[in-house]
Amino acid sequence: MATEGKKTVLIVEDDEFLRSLAAKRLEKDGLSVKDAVNGEAALKAIKEESFDLILLDLLLPGTDGFAVLEKAREMENGKEVPIVVFSNLGEKTDIERAKKLGANDFLVKANFTLDDIVDKIHSYLK
């Protein structure tokens, strides 16, 4: 399927190295990447711009990922966008809570390669 321009993914991740790795990998795959280092920055970005997908970490300083999920789903640009949580939390209760708040998917970072994550992203961008 032909795409009109590049798809844009917002990466919300506080760890700088993980963020740059993920961004680099996504860009190699032809995606355009914006990033946010914390919950506040993420909400500001979602308010100002519409994304094709959001990759969201949960443990963030200040406004955490759960709060971002909740608030984003109430925003114009955040209502429909696929949000894939990638976190190092992974207990049943965390997964259930994130899904209840509107996460489309939940990936435990250490258990997935970036290739897996890119595949997952493409499955939502079709």
Partner: peptide, 21 residues
């Protein structure tokens, strides 16, 4: 949980190296 963050970083780096990226 805290071990998982550095481990993800190492895993992803190797992953990128393996993939030739």
């Amino acid at each position: 949980h805290q071990l998982r963050t550095p481990l993800s970083a190492i895993k992803w780096t190797f992953n990128m190296l393996q993939g030739g990226q």
